[in-house]
Nucleic acid binder design. Structure first.
Lengths: 345, 345
DNA sequence: CTGAAAGCGCTAACAA
DNA sequence: TTGTTAGCGCTTTCAG
């Protein structure tokens, strides 16, 4: 059995003929542009409905816009990003813009491929979530198309930015733990060598925030940072190392929830219990953290708000490419759960 | 400070002029089309590199292809789908095709919006993962663009399909539990009313497979199905109900891992322990399931393979739209972990 | 307010 | 093998 022959697409010419007007008129109605009488609009609208006409985005893009916003997500598996995405789509839901996602961006090469692909497809604006590419590269992208960078500290005149205040977030965790009576609070960070990224990436800021908060609370002597990676495996290795210390920490602040998962694993394996023997906190407030059996104390970044702001900014930037770039920083909140408690006597 | 003025894009005309050839020649080189001498190819390639030329996908789409494959994912949060996506992107990685994802497709309306948007953008092929839209709707989409449907049983001449053998998967779980000595094995299914979907959706097949397997093992009298939804909440409610039975089941087969999470929650709340008092199994083998502290027995659908097959099929369908449609069914495997054990004496 | 006509960047049909 | 030319479907001047 054969699939039916593909039908010819209804074009603007069909609509114009059917409505007895010019294609220009139809185009104006489509774009709500100035210069079309109410009667004409009504006539055209009717023709559009009757024919089931849909404008061809690619063809529109050749002269005007494609009404498409590209979103690049680094890791679809990290449960924090869907939150941001929801914020973006919700903010764009009532506009004519359609969101399209670029998948699987692990590393600079993949990011370059995806951003290029989006530019080639004439996207009107880009939202890059937690990109790892160099600043130069980001500015290059931004010079081709309005761009908002999410989750990278350090601003650029070339693009707008939305970040979470990671220093503050780390401080919330340390403060919470110290308030419970902990002194030996350790931190597991994501290993970072690149000097640019050292300044701009959230992971580095969280480690910084941890150190600053420890000092501010007079706990400088207990500062203890293990460098692994923001993965479950990294958390597991980091915790292993911490548990072998002569003086074991009584609390571990993992730089991300996935890391905390690995920590919980290692702690259980060592025959210790959480939070009686050791407290554990994460960052991101992912679904994992909220899950009853785990109930991980974490920091909420308000991903939804981050997304909404990014969407708003990219729309503004599309409308006016020449206003100065802006940076939005959102305050995180602490979500205390059952993995943190008073330290053992 | 103002963003730099956007540079004019390098076009095929620029390349042609720079290489001293016609635009046709450049176009041929771009598409590896017949009729260009090696010297010409080399010359054009060099010009392309020197100018940093990139073809404009929208413009290409107006005559030929856009080299874009659209993937629609129902719920980015469900950890099973990234697996499928990885399979797709990997299979497409060495081709000229770029994958773009449509976000947030919960419900028929959202699905329609996304599929329309993809068609409007001239995508060359679509992969629809676990769509809920009506068969008619899917065939409508497929009539406009080569389409592969993933995770819907029931074939159509209009589109290719890739599915997991859910009946077999359910059978693996029931067999495993029965082998451990369980008799009172209950199932939590996703409530389904729509008659079409009743036949085509994986959730319905899993419930069917459960019933068939129970009968085949002579356990028909213990068949016990609770209808809630494939969410953590649904699992929680379903388990609550099961735990109140005069004769409590000794094992619960949850139709999905997220459901099993809710079950674990409810079981813990009831003061029972897993697997000593009650065994729990899920379906999908998500990251959740693999996580050490949970260690959920589950069914692996080989999401990666599903994705690879879908990508392969869509490419074939783009090349030749007139071969008969095909259905691929992949066998699932059981992944026994620590939530299932012998029933209590 | 309305429409004719000229492209946007590319590919395909056709000539040379 | 190569180049010329006519569109693809739309937006955008620019006359009327």
């Amino acid at each position: 059995m054969k699939p039916p022959a593909p039908r010819r697409r209804v074009t603007i010419v069909d609509v114009a003929r059917h409505a007895q007007v010019s294609t220009t008129a139809v185009s104006k109605v489509l774009r709500n542009a100035y210069g079309a009488s109410p009667e004409m609009r009504a006539k055209v609208r009717r023709a559009i409905d009757e024919l089931g006409y849909r404008p061809h985005a690619g063809a529109r893009g050749l002269r005007g816009q494609t009404y498409t916003i590209g979103v690049m997500l680094p890791d679809i598996r990290n449960p924090f990003f869907p939150e941001v995405l929801d914020g973006i789509t919700q903010a764009l839901e009532d506009t004519e813009y359609q969101v399209l996602l670029g998948p699987g961006c692990n590393g600079e090469k993949a990011e370059a491929r995806v951003t290029e692909a989006m530019i080639d497809r004439g996207m009107d604006g880009l939202i890059l979530v937690a990109p790892v590419s160099s600043r130069t590269r980001l500015e290059h992208v931004a010079s081709a198309v309005p761009t908002v960078v999410v989750g990278r500290h350090g601003s650029s005149p070339g693009y707008d930015a939305v970040v979470n205040d990671d220093i503050e977030g780390a401080s919330l965790v340390v403060g919470h733990l110290a308030g419970l009576g902990h002194r030996r609070i350790a931190h597991i960070e994501h290993h970072e060598t690149d000097p640019t990224r050292l300044a701009e990436m959230p992971n580095a800021r969280r480690a910084d925030g941890y150190r600053q908060a420890m000092r501010a609370l007079g706990l400088a002597e207990w500062i203890d940072v293990v460098s692994t990676s923001y993965t479950q495996e990294g958390g597991y290795r980091g915790a292993k190392e911490l548990l072998e210390r002569p003086q074991r920490p009584t609390a571990v602040f993992a730089g991300a929830d996935v890391v905390a998962m690995g920590v919980l694993d290692a702690v259980a394996e060592a025959g210790l219990s959480v939070p009686d023997d050791i407290s554990v906190a994460g960052y991101d407030n992912t679904t994992f953290a909220a899950f009853g059996l785990i109930s991980l104390t974490s920091v909420d970044q308000a991903g939804h708000e981050i997304g909404r702001n990014a969407a708003r900014l990219v729309l503004e930037r599309i409308t006016d490419r020449h206003t100065p770039s802006v940076q939005v920083s959102l305050a995180p909140t602490l979500v205390p759960r059952r993995t943190t408690a008073r330290p053992p006597e």
